[in-house]
Design a protein around this nucleic acid. Sequence first.
DNA 1: TAGCTAAACGATAGCAGCTCTCACTTGAGA
DNA 2: TCTCAAGTGAGAGCTGCTATCGTTTAGCTA
Lengths: 219, 219
Amino acid sequence: MNQGPSAAADSAMPAIAGAEAGLGLRERKKLRTRQAIRAAARRLIDERGYDSTTIEQIAAAAEVSPSTVFRYFPSKEHIVLTDDYANFTMAFLRERLADEPPLTALRGVLTEMVRGFAGDLSEDYRWRRRLVRRVPAVRALVGESQDRWIDTVSEVLAERAGVPADNLELRVLVGAVTGALHQVLWGDRSEDTDLVAMIERALVVLEHPDSLGYPGTTG
Amino acid sequence: MNQGPSAAADSAMPAIAGAEAGLGLRERKKLRTRQAIRAAARRLIDERGYDSTTIEQIAAAAEVSPSTVFRYFPSKEHIVLTDDYANFTMAFLRERLADEPPLTALRGVLTEMVRGFAGDLSEDYRWRRRLVRRVPAVRALVGESQDRWIDTVSEVLAERAGVPADNLELRVLVGAVTGALHQVLWGDRSEDTDLVAMIERALVVLEHPDSLGYPGTTG
DNA sequence: TAGCTAAACGATAGCAGCTCTCACTTGAGA
DNA sequence: TCTCAAGTGAGAGCTGCTATCGTTTAGCTA
């Protein structure tokens, strides 16, 4: 959980556009160090691959000591994949989950989330997706993030539906939606269309699971 | 993938009851070494926890060298969680997946799989489930296993449905089913009823996702 | 402007998981 | 019985990660 000082601050997140606004010199330096480590890691990994890139090399390229790297990121994987993705979700989850049938409520949350997260299929997102597919350690991190997401969503939905948070049916539903979302976000497909459109297609499948809708029936 | 010599041989799997049948002395010794490592690991982990148990201690308790431990298991996690679970599935997957609508076809496979895998809620299964919940590394292993499962099931279903294996709708469906299955197998619920019955309840949810079926409507 | 406090940093040591190499032992088949 | 290959142990070494400690530096206050 703890990600070192002022986690979830850089990254290509929407909003929070003009960072470095009213921050003191100290905060600005931290932000820059964080970005420097990230940039160095990305460059080195592109050059020689994830496994062949050591923390020592990343530290040297970012001009800090190895210990400093671990002060900013709890593990090597976290350097390439911050989970402000999860934080980002939690923020508006409780507000957006309306008093509708669960799947209907989730539809809105999912589309909005994906739109904010990586709706533009940015270069940065694609880079991360490639790593998620290639590197087991990074993949594991995504899994942890998803588990937390399932817990939170289940809690909120349970509250609204008036069932205990560990209700099997509820968790199965959230688990299924998450499993579907996972395929959309990190799946290995040749096509690379709009993520929001893909979410729509996924939801159609979830609503009519016994009649596979093929491309074109999306509506 | 490679798990050392003669992987997936012990474990509390059904069938394959009378192991050590027509094997030579060499094979029998290997089997016994494998079981000794497993038993030692389980005992030590029960005593002092997963993280506090080192490979060196396990090796000493099993009366082998640390290098030998890694010859039998590719990683520490694999000692407690072999994925013959996955192998077991693949074996009869292609035969059992009938030419029915995907979800209908999966229903049979899931129940039969769970029945064979851990339908009895055995002590061994519960022990593994506790570790999966507690230890991130073990949890990650389950995730990898699931990814492979999704790939295989998707391939088989794609073949029958006449669509490419990376078809989005198909992978979303399989991903959703897997996400639901995950909750049933490894979820953290207080209740501890029959797994097969829980699978049934999960399938009801998948078929009618917009009307949460509460306990009792299982049928 | 001078000085105090706490945050940030670098250096060092150390542990555990994992890989690789090499020499030795032992079971299996000719 | 002899030979070969599989199995094993010992050891060295790399890497991710943690913890400690002394030093530097930013930010506040007098």
